[in-house]
Write a protein that binds this DNA or RNA. Sequence first.
RNA 1: GUCCUCGUAGUUUAACGGAUAGAACACCAGCCUUCUAAGCUGGAUACGAAGGUUCGACUCCUUCCGGGGACACCA
Length: 566
Amino acid sequence: MQFKKEIAEAIKETLKQFKVKTDKTKIEAELKPPPAPALGDFAFPCFSLAKSFKKNPTDIAKLLRDAIRKTKNFDKIDASGPYLNFFIEKTRLAAETIKQVLKEKQKYGRGQNKIGRVMIEFPSPNTNKPLHLGHLRNMAIGESVARLLEATDNKVIRANLNNDRGVHICKSMLAYQKFGRNKKPDKKTDHFVGDYYVRFAKELEKNSKLQDETQALLVKWENGDKKTIALWKKMTAWAIDGFKETYKTFGIKHDITYFESSLYDKGRNIVNDGLKKGVFQKRADGAILIDLTKDGLDEKILLRADGTAVYITQDLYLAKLKNDKFNLDGSIYVVGSEQEYHFKVLFLILRKLGFKFAKNLKHLSYGMVMLPEGRMKSREGTVVDADDLIEEVRQLAEKELTKRYHLPTKELKSRGLKIALAAIKYHFLRPDVGKTITFNPKESISFDGNTGPYILYAYARAGSIIKKSNRRIAVLKIFSVNQEERNLINKISELPQTVLAGAREYNSAPIANYVFDLAQIFNAFYHQCPVIGSDNESLRLNLTNAFRQTLKNALYLLGIETIEEM
RNA sequence: GUCCUCGUAGUUUAACGGAUAGAACACCAGCCUUCUAAGCUGGAUACGAAGGUUCGACUCCUUCCGGGGACACCA
């Protein structure tokens, strides 16, 4: 922001007079809006100068104020306690901000936080049951962080890993084999597969021998038994086809998809190399392990005594594979916090093996999604299904729309879906990424207050103003700026710094909070300041346009689409 | 047992170590002949406990209490 630079320059020059050396960018970073607008536009805290001045911050603020007043021409400078508060002429502040937004359009808010080529992996589901609430949070986070990185000058590669082998897959397979009678799916195909996973758990209660049968089935699968492979192929295809539909509805696409079934066996070379290098050890029975007790972790098995691979073996391989293929500067795994230990171990091993890319790896850990009753258990069927939730919220949105309009079915469906997705995505992105969420069905699908629909509504209302103005091209003329207008302008001007903060922390929550503040401030403006026909129509119309652009850009970073009418 | 995380109004939550801890839901009272009331305005209520570091702590450190997670030759 230009004003910050101006102020920082003035402070720096003034400090020079006092023989205090400082960095301009450091000063710029310290400048921030005061808690109340009446205090000014930018505040400079004087605490850090106490040592060099050998005075208390309150006196320093006064000193600096007088010195700057002599040389520089600001609208107003105040020393308020330990803070030096700057006022920028309101019409200038307004004009610059609005012009910048309208000029940069969809690029407004973008910044520089270059990492380079970054892969982000999500949601990496198991192919034995449909996606659930946890995956919704995962996908919302993954897509949003991907967009944040793209908006800050990075090339992003979206990846997905299908966990399509193992005992859990064999459970659904076994149940289908025994009770499915070659039935074709009569519902969304991943749901159909999931039913057999639940069925297995139920049957297991009656007959504990089924557990051994799944193990036997896994051995058959690993030995390439034709019938087993055919069944596996059929069922994983059903699961994955179902996922694809959900991804499409949700609005995510992957650039590359990996399959555990073709990776799980390939980490051996890495493990054997590590053994040669002396990073790993061989146990008496032949198993290969690494002792991480000196690093505060435990021992970890990397290959079983019989030479078969374990979960982490393929992760070692996949990490290398990704890097070899894409030459990555960063690689992010969007995976729940329950796997923090696993990734700590994985990254440490890769570092010990001497892989340069190991320092670029990041586990983007997010908190679990719980139900009021406790943890979701897919085996017990207490999961809230992703597709079902989207559908349920969509129907609620359609109901609201029907109250207001008579829309053609197609339009009703499409608008209803966008509103539902806004509600869901916003709900999952708003809380800090690391926090556990308790999903309360009643509150979580609310459309009032701090929710996705509230924000879309503000956007639609602003659009209504633009439409009623007949989209006349208004040359920006500013005569005066009142409190509501100024609040909105200030908030609009904060998008770039918010995007940077979010990108640096791989966290969309600051954007979500920003979007709500922005919508709320607009709503206050909307009620207080009539646009069309007002004396200040030029400013207000342009401001409304700038608001729409800013909100749209911010929502895009959350993966949320706007709608023109609501 | 060890480690990681989170504790802010009744509920869901916000706050680079800095000014009066900010919202939303729910509750109460108002506002639709004016650009969409999924809205706006006003109202009561909160930093788990105790120490410490600091000019200054919701934020950092220690201990305790409470919730969640992990420490598989499961994925």
